[in-house]
Design a binder for these strands. Structure first.
Length: 462
RNA sequence: GGCUGGGUAGCAAAGCGGUUAUGCAGGGGCCUGCAAAGCCUUAUAGACCGGUUCGACUCCGGUCCCAGCCUCCA
């Protein structure tokens, strides 16, 4: 039984899929005119973890995440760069997928692009016009009439009259109501355009998600997610469009992620205080980033800092260290899983609104037991290690060979390190501890940590 | 101003009306030539003020503070 906090009801609710054992989930993806930043990383990683958990609990899951490849910012950036829009968007789509691989994500089932979905949008706009909920302004643009949709504001808890009071004066007051929003924009010279019954133009931002989500998942589907900043107006407008056009309930469960903060302030494009994923990857591996993202609950703010990344790195190192040098084995894993309640508690944590911090805490419990068992009962330690790898896998971590993970990115070759270790070993045999400690210090200087044990000396990256 | 969230130990971050969160850092110990890693052990919480209760960090009310949305943003 999976419970999810629904923004619509502001409560945790049991997920009851509309179509038996099948779950449809749509996530608002990227507008591809720049590299993804850490806020995007959170959406990418969290919904990957969410979809993995759903797949383990339901027979089938259709995870749709769109790509916005036409909008004002893209046009603006293409002009600035003096490049084709499609060249620009293709470049950043490739970059996004590279980032995603680094973060250890699985691919969504479908990644529809706005520019491939124009027909569905036109169909929906036409339907809205036919129903009298949309109209054409004097400039030719098609607008959605918020006053003609009864439930406007139900997701964000906003009230039309209060919004009205705070509304800014619209320069193009071609709208009947300042809160009306564009469904279709008439093309300006040198802008990309598609033909429509109302004239050549391009879609407004909100209509694409209504069209693509319902096209792939049906007029009423299970889960729709995105960052909290999309709650209003984007998701509110999606509801207005979809429910207005289809005359049925749109989304059952709305999920919104908290922000990634920098110095207690939202990381965002407009504040220009963001770090791109690839910048962070220069100093930390993708798995550390992934761990960092899941170390707080998805609805809480996630504070980005060197300290928290270091924390994530250390924590992950502890997990990998526990399974290092152990013969992880499936053989006894099931018995071990039965004997201890790690797996059931782990699943229960994720069932409860995808509580990744609790799930991670259970990983550490397993790791500790691996560490205590490895000298007592090797088989049991191996089975526990296998369990740890399995549970980590559910979150998309602990997939690497421990040795490789712990040694990755060292500045000198493995051979050189092994040579130094050999020299140090010889010095130790001769009890020349000055020399042996000197060698260890030298390696420490370049970030190589040595660890002696009864079976020999191993090394890892600091 | 309206609407949302939130304030937990040195830091990060969860659950929970009465019983160990977890990771890092700190103290003591074991192990080690010494370390590191690991293990054992230990200290440090719940913004403030009231209320409900046998009992509240957890429920209710108020105060203060912080963030977010109300304009493009994941």
């Amino acid at each position: 039984m999976i419970k999810i906090f629904n923004t619509l009801s502001k409560k945790k609710e049991v997920l009851k899929p509309i179509h038996g054992d099948h779950v449809g989930i749509y996530v608002c993806g990227m507008t591809v005119y720049d590299y993804c930043h850490m806020g995007h990383a959170r959406v990418l990683v969290m919904f990957d973890i969410i979809s993995r958990h759903l797949r383990r609990n339901f027979k089938s899951v259709n995870y749709v995440r769109n790509i916005t490849d036409i909008d004002d910012k893209i046009i603006k950036r293409a002009v600035e760069n003096n490049e084709d829009i499609s060249t620009l968007t293709e470049r950043f789509i490739v970059a996004m997928h590279e980032d995603e691989v680094a973060l250890g994500n699985l691919e969504p089932d479908i990644e529809p692009r706005a520019t491939d979905s124009i027909d569905q949008m036109l169909y929906m706009i036409k339907s809205l016009i036919d129903k009298g909920i949309a109209y054409q302004g004097h400039n030719g643009d098609i607008y959605y009439s918020v006053r003609n949709f009864d439930n406007y504001g139900k997701l964000s808890g906003k009230n039309l009259d209060e919004l009205e009071a705070g509304a800014r004066v619209d320069v193009e007051s071609d709208k009947k109501d300042p809160l009306d929003f564009v469904l279709w924009k008439m093309a300006k010279p040198n802008e990309p355009k598609w033909s429509s019954p109302w004239g050549d133009g391009r879609p407004g931002w909100h209509i694409e998600c209504s069209a693509m989500s319902t096209h792939h998942l049906g007029n009423n589907f299970d889960i729709h997610g995105g960052g909290s900043d999309l709650t209003f107006p984007h998701h509110e407008n999606e509801i207005a469009q979809s429910e207005g056009a289809n005359e049925c309930s749109f989304v059952n469960t709305w999920m919104h992620l908290g922000f990634v903060n920098l110095d207690n302030e939202k990381m965002s494009k407009s504040l220009n205080n963001f770090f791109t994923i690839r910048t962070v990857l220069e100093n930390y591996d993708g798995e550390t980033l992934r761990y960092f993202i899941m170390s707080s609950h998805y609805r809480s703010p996630l504070n980005f800092s060197d300290e928290s990344l270091e924390n994530a790195k250390t924590a992950l190192t502890r997990l990998y260290t526990s399974i290092r040098g152990i013969n992880a084995s499936d053989a006894a894993m099931d018995q071990v899983s039965m004997r201890f309640d790690f797996e059931s508690r782990f699943n229960a944590a994720l069932d409860d609104d995808f509580n990744t911090p609790i799930a991670l805490s259970i990983l550490f419990e397993v790791a500790k037991l691996v560490n205590t068992e490895r000298k007592k009962d090797e088989d049991q330690a191996g089975a526990l290690a296998q369990l740890l790898i399995k549970l980590g896998g559910y979150l998309g971590i602990l997939k690497s060979i421990p040795e490789e993970y712990l040694q990755q990115g060292s500045r000198i070759s493995d051979e050189e390190i092994e040579e130094k270790i050999k020299q140090r070993e010889e010095a130790r045999i001769k009890k020349d501890f000055n020399l042996s400690d000197q060698i260890r210090d030298e390696l420490a200087q370049i970030g190589i940590v040595l660890e002696d044990s009864s079976t020999g000396t191993s090394w890892r990256k600091a």
